[in-house]
Design a protein around this nucleic acid. Sequence first.
DNA 1: GTCTATAGAGGGATAGAC
DNA 2: GTCTATCCCTCTATAGAC
Lengths: 250, 250
Amino acid sequence: MSPTEHRERPPALTRERLLDSAERHFSEHGFAGASLREITNDAEANLAAVSYHFGSKEELFVAVIERVMAPINRERLELLDAAEERAAGRPLELEELIAILVGPVLRSHAAEGGAGCSLRLFARGQFEDASMWKRIAEGPLKVIKPRLEAALARSLPHLSAQEIAYRMHFMMGAVKSAAGDQHALRAMSRGLCDPDDIEGTLAQLVAFLAAGMRAPSLAARPTSGPPSGRSSARSSGRSARRADSKEKPK
Amino acid sequence: MSPTEHRERPPALTRERLLDSAERHFSEHGFAGASLREITNDAEANLAAVSYHFGSKEELFVAVIERVMAPINRERLELLDAAEERAAGRPLELEELIAILVGPVLRSHAAEGGAGCSLRLFARGQFEDASMWKRIAEGPLKVIKPRLEAALARSLPHLSAQEIAYRMHFMMGAVKSAAGDQHALRAMSRGLCDPDDIEGTLAQLVAFLAAGMRAPSLAARPTSGPPSGRSSARSSGRSARRADSKEKPK
DNA sequence: GTCTATAGAGGGATAGAC
DNA sequence: GTCTATCCCTCTATAGAC
């Protein structure tokens, strides 16, 4: 073996401290708005350590995202495996499926030691530069998305593939809002809602999403005319008085 | 009068070209990621024109947001006024109310002459620095939010104020996702959904949101126990195996 | 109202000592 | 594996000519 002189602080920990600090700064200021100097100062590490451990700011960002997403997606897969085994071939109950999709995301906030801002980072990810988001979307997301899509389609046989896709998109938006904008939830509700009450928020979110996903299909009727309900869903009279929308609001 | 030598290009238009260009760049790269040099080059204006017309980058950003939001909120208020007058004291139908809230946002994309990226900017706004977002939230939002809240409460008498607040938050998230991340909608649906089909997207969104808002109240039962439905809504067995979530995914 | 030129700060990346 | 020092670039903001 090598000399193994025991050091007080294992040297490899710098890398982890950099990831912790970067997670905080990226989630708060975004990729462009965070500076490596602040990140390394906060991590009590040297500026050059970023280059040494990750190669560039972009690689550091991707590493942060992957560290946040990996356990979430791992847990989702485990829960999905267990639930599908329990269901023994029958479609999963929608509430259970949605809780599997959403629960690990929300819970990662409360549990993650110290960092606790991964959700905002997650919600923000899609707005970072396309090249980075592509790398993220083609990573762990590629594994879990088809599984969820298939499970949703089985639990919602009344929807077309197009409607499943629309509603999944809306669902992800609501999840990101609940997960990544907790400050707005508290402020806009004037204290009525407590974003730190993860289980309460989760219950509300699952109920909302399950009902939304279960909405009747709009594809029942052909392809013309107002697709939905009674007399509305198409705000009102004129819909294109927009030539003047560029006037000065002054 | 002044000499009025007719110029080919009226000088005051620089301000508008700056706003147009800034809207594109801010929506694509965010506040921190957009540079005044690119904005002014794209606007065929001079770098110093930003200082002259707006004073600073931040003031330019706020001006862009206000220009985008003003006609949307104006239209929302007009539609709401008309609908409430038509309803003559009765609660509005939920679909109509949601279409009033969401329609002007989605439609502003298709209509706005040339810019057409205001939605992403809108969805992205909340992630900009808190000071700027505060100025935006305290601006036109302050006018419209109480009206919508009151109308929702009247159309959804089975919900508590807390539940209205939760669901409004989820709803805004879904709207932002539909409005600001059209690229993801197209990519994730593999072409099934066309984000440029505004009316189709709007119909799907209204149906989804109305069903979600109409979900049964969870507050019916006291304050203990699993709040929702049958046997699920609480993913599965262990829910706090998170001490290991910081392990390396390597 | 628009321009050029530049100040002054801060950014990411890197070479090379230890 | 960590550090200092520095390069070189881009950024915002501004002064002052036209």
